[in-house]
Write a protein that binds this DNA or RNA. Structure first.
Lengths: 206, 206
DNA sequence: TAATAAACATGACATATGTCATGTTTATGG
DNA sequence: CCATAAACATGACATATGTCATGTTTATTA
């Protein structure tokens, strides 16, 4: 079983797979951060989810029951990915009820997350969604720093914009304001959360 | 196994469960249409999904791996719901790999749908999202009619608004325009899709 | 390290959508 | 069937966010 897992490394400018590619493999993030992206014919992009070590993707779950990837997967920096043929994976799950149950739970949680994101997009303002993203990343990706919490993932204003459904300009403006208000500092390569409580308050403000 | 399934009927003003209720049961829609709703402390609502016969909910998948329902489930008209204790359901899946695989596929598709919805909210205009909703319902819920396709589910402008993330007023204005352009006619109790092609064109217009 | 591209920044203005108010029509339940 | 509430409609106006333009700063990589 384990011998059917292969490891591949990717860099910033690679694609792990593109929208429309056939879904031959099942993937797991081993190292680094991967983003799942959907784009329109006009070139607009929307980042659905950042995947971190241990995450399955299956980002686009059609890997399970569909013919082609409904979105692309791109590394954010250097990453290492484990892959297994879809067929082997299915067989493994069929023989191993505990593993299947774990996958059901994982997918359930992912569905939940996706629905929470839908609600945020529908009901929250742009600055709340951006604050929310930063709070979330501080927990998932942050390391302690003398002045707050440092994010280890590289994330440009454009990345943030695509993650919360706004334009790059709006993301820049909001981040400028957050900086002025001493909530955050730094740019893509070195983002620092300086006031987590303040961001949390903003994220859930009416 | 089957004897652990119980059936319950609900009417328009009932709740099947509310946000925050413990997730004791696993549910299946037998008859009618159910909506999954999340709401904010301020009373704003967002409808995540309409469930029709055969759908599992698990609308909020935390029924699988969480303590309390992250959203409420409300009938749209009269419905009939099958329920099974979560524990029995888990046991059944563990003994029945085929059933577990089906659930994995179902959840994968639901996750996919949710992500498609996220993309629409992030990148499409209000009128496109509303057109898209009507096209989708015509296929899932429509019956042929001399003048087009009739929707069998009762759906107010407010319902539509909550489903596509806009205000009721905006939904009413857009529907007024659609009516003027002979794309649709009727109100909540009797909605008619008069020009499916026109709606489809609008839904995917740049 | 120099050249080039990417990222960040900000102003001016456009516009889609929200908000609030008011009235009419239609449906519902006692 | 009548009374009441829900749904639909539309105007006037507010505002959040998008668009386009231009410039600076910061990072890449040749």
């Amino acid at each position: 079983m384990l011998q059917e897992l292969t490891e591949t490394r990717y860099g910033k400018h690679d694609y792990i797979f593109r929208e429309g590619d056939p879904t031959e493999y099942f993937h797991i993030v081993k190292e680094g951060t991967v983003k799942c992206v959907k784009s329109t014919p006009e070139g607009k992009e929307c980042t659905l989810k950042m995947l971190m070590p241990g995450d399955l993707f299956c980002c686009d779950a059609a890997a399970f029951d569909g013919a082609s990837h409904p979105g692309s997967a791109q590394p954010m920096g250097d990453v290492s990915i484990l892959r297994m043929k879809k067929k082997s994976y299915f067989e493994m799950l069929r023989r191993n009820p505990d593993a299947a149950m774990e996958v059901i739970k994982y997918l359930g949680n992912r569905l939940n997350e996706a629905q929470e994101k839908t609600k945020d997009l529908a009901l929250d303002r742009a600055d709340q969604r951006l604050a929310s993203l930063l709070v979330d990343l501080a927990a998932r990706n942050g390391i302690p720093d003398p002045n707050g919490i440092r994010l280890t993932v590289r994330m440009t204003r454009e990345d943030m914009a695509n993650m919360v459904g706004i334009t790059t300009e709006t993301a820049i403006r909001i981040m400028s304001r957050f900086k002025r208000d001493r909530l955050v500092s730094g740019t893509a390569n070195r983002l620092l959360i300086r006031d987590l409580k303040g961001l949390k308050a903003l994220a859930s403000a009416s």
